[in-house]
Simulated assay, not measured.
Amino acid sequence: MTARVLQVITGLGIGGAEQQLRLLLRHLPARYRCEVLTLTNPGPVAEGLRADGVPVSCLEMGGNRDLAALPRLVAHIRRGGYDLVHAHLYRACVYGRLAARLAGVPAVATEHSLGAREIEGRPLTRGVRALYLASERLGAATAAVSPTVAGRLGDWGVPPGRIRTVPNGIDARRFAFDPAARRRLRAELRLPDGVFTVAGVGRLVAGKRFDALVEAVAALPGAVLLLAGDGPERTALRAQAARLGAAERIRLLGAREDVPELLAAADLFVSASREEAFGLAVVEALAAGLPVLHGPCPAVDDLPGDHAPGARSLGECPAAGLTAALRTAAAAGPRRLPPPPAVAHYDIARSADLLAELYAHTLGGARPPRVPRPTRTRTPVPVERAARR
């Protein structure tokens, strides 16, 4: 039996949650016909979804407090005749679960970014937590991307019976080491043979601690940093590299689609984040056969130690020993490792199967009562039209 599912997400710029949504939709069983509604920012991932054949619309929401967007979202859900709403990221979870309840459609959500101290860069204030918990009760279940996040949700007061663990996943074949890709990209980036090259991937925000990585690489004579990603810290990181006299060795590459090739070109991967809800880039680096240095990373920390032998933890304060760890790695020289068991554990097909089970369980339960239709409201704009505005 076919079910129509509306995926509601805060934005579709290049980010971990956005890319994960696209990958999951490629692997969900065909009986789930999915469409995507982004509240704002129909960015590059929207174009990728459309290229995959997934319909994408934009609600053109003005901000967190644009309450006028709620009736438009309710109307969109009703008009689409969806059987299920799946919300992603904080704002979409709050508005999406409420709109689904008002439209009389069951909802689930995925918690992608709940850290110990913040969620999507927001400090975990009493108000943020209260609003999250109030909206969580309106859905049928919340999927956590790691056991660590599941534990945090339970500590917040979400009943254990409402929490499902659906880990992030990767397409390991896409990240398998390719010597030809290594030679090609190193030539493109003018990296001579023998230059020790460190890779970092992620949104350029303070919590990722790329400033610590820049400082550590700058202190290692001759080493080069390839940093893929964009965000508000980009200008500050560029200025830091210049101040340290390492502007030529710190390569800020911006948001890129060729992360597998970037990992092939590198000799070491580093994640110096203060905290992560999962740590997807670490798993991708392990799939590429790279040695990895990481801070708190549930994707690795939640598994037995022998599942990721190429990953070395830098502890709770990853910036402290990072320079010394880089020196040790550089002295050991470039090496490629076989993909560890952690990579198979996070296969995207397995994650899609777990999500399909959650959908089936939710749709098999009682649907919430329908409520009277609101007055007619503005239709969300198709993403291709919104992008032209």
Rank of each mutant, 00 (worst) to 15 (best):
A3P: 02
R4K: 15
V5Y: 02
Q7E: 14
Q19L: 15
L24E: 11
R26S: 11
A30V: 12
R33M: 08
C34L: 03
V36A: 03
N41R: 15
P42Q: 09
G43Q: 10
G43F: 04
G43R: 10
V45G: 10
A46Q: 10
L49K: 11
C58H: 05
R72P: 08
L73K: 07
H76I: 00
Y82T: 06
V85M: 08
V85T: 07
H86Y: 01
G96V: 08
L98F: 06
R101G: 03
V108T: 15
V108P: 04
T110H: 11
T110L: 06
T110F: 08
E118C: 09
A140I: 00
A143W: 02
V145E: 02
T148W: 11
G161M: 10
V166N: 02
A181I: 02
E188T: 12
L189F: 07
L189T: 06
G200K: 00
A206G: 11
A218P: 03
A223L: 07
V224K: 09
L227Q: 10
G231I: 03
A241P: 05
R243C: 00
A255S: 15
E257Q: 15
L262W: 03
A264R: 03
A265R: 04
A266R: 05
S271D: 11
S273H: 06
A288E: 00
H294P: 03
D301K: 01
G305Q: 12
P318K: 07
A319D: 11
G321S: 06
T323S: 15
A325I: 01
T328M: 10
A332H: 05
P338Y: 02
I348T: 06
A352E: 09
D353K: 14
T362F: 07
A366T: 15
T375S: 14
E384R: 14
